[in-house]
Each structure stands twice: as structure tokens, then as C-alpha cells.
Amino acid sequence: MVQQDKPILLDVAGLSVSFASDRGLVQAVRDVSFRVHEGEILSIVGESGSGKSVTLLSLLGLHDRKATRVEGSVSFRGKPILDLPASQMRAIRGREIGLISQDPMTALTPVYTIGWQIAEQIRAHENISARAAHRRAIELLGEVGLSNPGEAVDRYPHQLSGGMRQRAVIAMALSCNPVLLVADEPTTALDVTVQAQVIDLLLRLRKDFGSAIILITHDMGVVAEVAEQVAVMYAGRIVERGRTEEIFSAPLHPYTWGLMASIPPLTGPRLTKLRSIPGMPPTPETVPDGCGFAPRCAFARPICAERPPLQKVGGQAALCVIDDAERPALRRAALPQEELA
């Protein structure tokens, strides 16, 4: 396995995030662990509200410190970063870890040109002149595929389309050649053709700059296409993680089965109806102590009220009681045959 040879870039172990609310602390992220190797793309998938954004923001220290409690450990290049002094964390943010945030429509400050905002980031980390930073901004905008970067650089965010803004946000995140790019649903606000372009762009950037990418997305098609590693989140936990081929060919967790069953198949006969997972995901206040998915799981049993064990198959791991012996039969029942062919 190629990526195992590369050094670990980001190591998240036992990360939990809770918010102070009227009814005490509410845990939105529970005991999440994952690793990202250099140059690797990790995709985090999961329903809305499963805690994907919260996980990423808290490991970057971008949460509201007063209302949020973060536990666990996060190491970046072998150095723990959760308790780093603010000034040292600032040197990492934007320089070594770039963030592409969820909504490009609101992610840019409305009163400055995009060139100014990109130059601002460059100059926060590098000692270069405003002129040079401006030139770099133009180059970056060209690299992310804006057709007329020399003109776009002096535009204000409201003068750009959603796709152009998203590219500007990506250009900004890339401006200091970060070794890790954190992309929180970089394509949800875009239409399908632009989505494909943005994904291509991320892949090309990885090739050119060798950055590792954490990609949050709802789109299993994108995951299958670009990711090397996948982490499936449900109700604040990573319920399954492993290499993309493994997860797609032999998913372990019933929730992952549900996700797979809801992807329209590309080949084979058209299904009359896509399956969806019945019920609604729990909110952080209502997550049960045991398996969070049990109330919606077709294979739930009494033991699911307790904390599910971590089952490992090769490099793959899942939080579920279903063991190797009964899994294949249940999976066949849950997934349409085409998926497993």
C-alpha cells in the first residue's frame, strides 16, 4: 500500500467536541479518530448534522472557545496542536493547513476585492511586497481556472458568480502551498458541471503541489472517484473507515450499506426505486449511548444499546456488533446485487 509508506501528516485521536447549551453540554463529535498521510485524500461522508464540519473546525482551533469543549488529541506533523499557543496556531493556519469552507457565497469578506483577500493571506505568512502578493494572487486565480484572472483579481465577491467565488476561495486556501487542504463540501453550492471542474481542480492541485486533502462531501460518486481513504460519520462518530476500494466493495457497517444503496448505479438495469434509509438522523441531544444508528438500523438487536465494538477487517474498521460470520448475508439483503458485482 503506497500511502502507508508516506509519513503521517495529521493524526486525530479520540477527538470529542461538546457545545454548552441551555441543557448542559451537548456532544456533537464523539471519540473520533483518523489519520491523514502526506499527499493522501481522505473523504469524510455522512448525513447533514453528523458533525463533519465541527470536527474539522475544532481541529483547526476555529471553534468558539467559550462555548465549546474539545477533548482528545490532534497531532500535525507529529506535533500536538490542540493546545498550541494562539500565535503558533496562526502560523499553521492558512500557511500549512488551508481551509476551503462550506459556503463560498458567504466565505469572503464582502468589502474587499478577492485579490486583496488572497494577498492578505500571503502577506500574513510571507514577507513579500504588496505588489508581489498581488501578482501571486493573479497567478493563483489563473491556476484555479478563472478565465480572466487579471480582471477578476480586482472584483468584489458580490460581482462574481458562485463558481467563481468558490474558485477564489480555493485559490486563497492554496495561496501558501499548504501541505494539508481541508475542503468542507467545496461543491455543494455549485451546479453539476462546475462541481466536476472543482473536483478536477482539487485533484490537479494535489498532483502539482502534493498536498493532502480532507474532503467532506455528501456525494458518494465524488468519493469513489477521488478519495483514497474514506471515513463514514454518523451522529458524531466515525462508524466506519478504510480504503475507498474496500469500503465500496465490502462495506462493514449497516449505515454504509444504506449510503451505498442510495447511490444510483452507473451500470446494469435501472432500479425502479432507490433505497433510502428510513427515519431521521438524531440530533446531538438525542443520540443514544450505544450505537447511534440502532434506531434506524434494520439489523438492530438488544445489544446495540451498549457501546458497539470496533471490528477490523484488514485496514478497514467499523463500530458495529455484526461479526464476520453473519455480515455477508445481511449485506446481501441490504444492498442491491449490482453494487457488489
Partner: peptide
């Protein structure tokens, strides 16, 4: 609470700069 403030912080700007250039100005 705005996203662009989060972006500004993610860029690694100092709190003073985030306040004056991004929050106050808007």
C-alpha cells in the same frame, strides 16, 4: 458569527486584524 470571519481566522490573521479589517469594517 459570519462565515467570512471564520475564513479570516482560517487564513492565520491576528485577532486584531480580523477585528479591524474584517469585523469592524463590515
Amino acid at each position: 458569527q459570519e462565515d467570512f470571519i471564520r475564513t479570516a481566522r482560517a487564513k492565520g490573521l491576528s485577532p486584531a486584524r480580523v477585528m479591524v479589517r474584517h469585523a469592524l469594517r463590515t
